[in-house]
């Protein structure tokens, strides 16, 4: 393609006006690229510059002591982990199951399209709406109140679409001959899925899970109403489920907007940025492996 361009464009016959237009547009394109990259580098650099000095061992390993006016985020790290764990434990089987249904079982094209439309709709719904419905349904109707469990259940619905999509993509790249071979040897459908299809899909499931972790870590609006902003240390998982617990993102909001603790905000922001970098990197690695197998 590149070589062709040079051969085909007759540079000498181009009028000055056209040439100027070309240069201007090209400059604008490079400028846009430059703006985007500088923006990202500036953002990351500034957040680390303001935040990293405040990320101390004490900050990471203690809880907030109101009387001593000290802020630690250990409880919030634990709440975030518990919420990731709970949401994934529920969403992964359901999401993978949905993808298997769409790709392996259903032969009703209309229904598949309707399910896919619903899944896309779930992606489009803003998190504040999830927060409202989560509050009405999980906190009030099911009586879970503002708790880690109510927050996790709300997150389950929010992360389902990405798990379904990545698993489905991976299922589509699994060669049909694998399934045919297993079925021809007398295996039943579920046995084929369990032993042949699912192992081939593992990387799609993993990258879906990583994307979901990213969404959970960054979520704030939905969790503010469903899980609250608790900062008291609860290490027992099952007790934590029923207590109000703020994740790191929620606490970033609460500390900066309600207490004006900007340095704490930036410290949490730098931790979040490091997590985002790790998550993006590992999602890419998982995808690469996926491609190799497919």
């Amino acid at each position: 393609m590149k070589a062709k361009v040079q051969v085909l464009s007759l540079e000498s016959n181009i009028s000055a006006g056209r040439r100027v237009k070309d240069v201007v547009l090209k400059a604008l394109i490079y400028l846009s690229a430059l703006i985007t990259i500088l923006l990202l580098l500036g953002l990351i650099g500034y957040i680390f510059y303001r935040g990293l000095p405040h990320v101390t061992w004490e900050f990471l390993t203690t809880q907030r002591k109101v009387l001593e006016d000290k802020i630690g985020i250990l409880p919030n790290i634990i709440f975030t982990l518990y919420m990731i764990l709970t949401a994934l434990v529920i969403a992964l089987p359901v999401g993978v199951g949905a993808a298997i249904y769409l790709n392996e079982y259903s032969n009703n094209k209309g229904l598949v399209r309707f399910i896919e439309f619903s899944t896309e709709t779930l992606t489009a719904i803003p998190s504040i709406i999830y927060g409202l419905v989560g509050m009405l349904f999980f906190c009030q109707k099911l009586g879970l109140r503002s708790s880690v469990l109510a927050g996790s259940l709300t997150l389950v619905v929010m992360i389902l679409p990405s798990i379904i999509r990545t698993t489905q993509e991976s299922l589509k790249t699994t060669p049909q001959s694998y399934r045919d071979g297993a079925l021809a040897l007398g295996a039943t459908k579920w046995y084929t899925i369990r032993t042949i299809v699912l192992p081939c899909t593992i990387d799609g499931i993993v990258s879906g899970a990583i994307l979901a972790v990213g969404r959970i870590v960054g979520e704030s609006a939905a969790l503010l109403f469903t899980a609250g902003a608790g900062y008291v240390l609860v290490t027992n998982y099952f007790r934590a489920l029923s207590t109000s617990g703020g994740t790191l993102s929620v606490m970033l909001y609460v500390y900066t907007m309600e207490s004006g603790e900007f340095s704490v905000g930036f410290a949490i922001a730098s931790i979040l940025m490091i997590l985002v970098l790790i998550i993006n990197f590992s999602a890419k690695a998982a995808k690469k492996r996926l491609k190799k197998i497919g």
Binding site: T36, L40, L43, I47, G218, V250
Partner: peptide
């Protein structure tokens, strides 16, 4: 090598944008 930068922008939590927004 530029595409990941754009993807990274998508991954930044909205509260972080808000924080840098108020301060800068």
């Amino acid at each position: 090598s530029v595409r990941p930068a754009v993807e990274l922008l998508a991954g930044i939590p909205s509260v972080v944008y808000g924080l840098v927004g108020i301060i800068v």
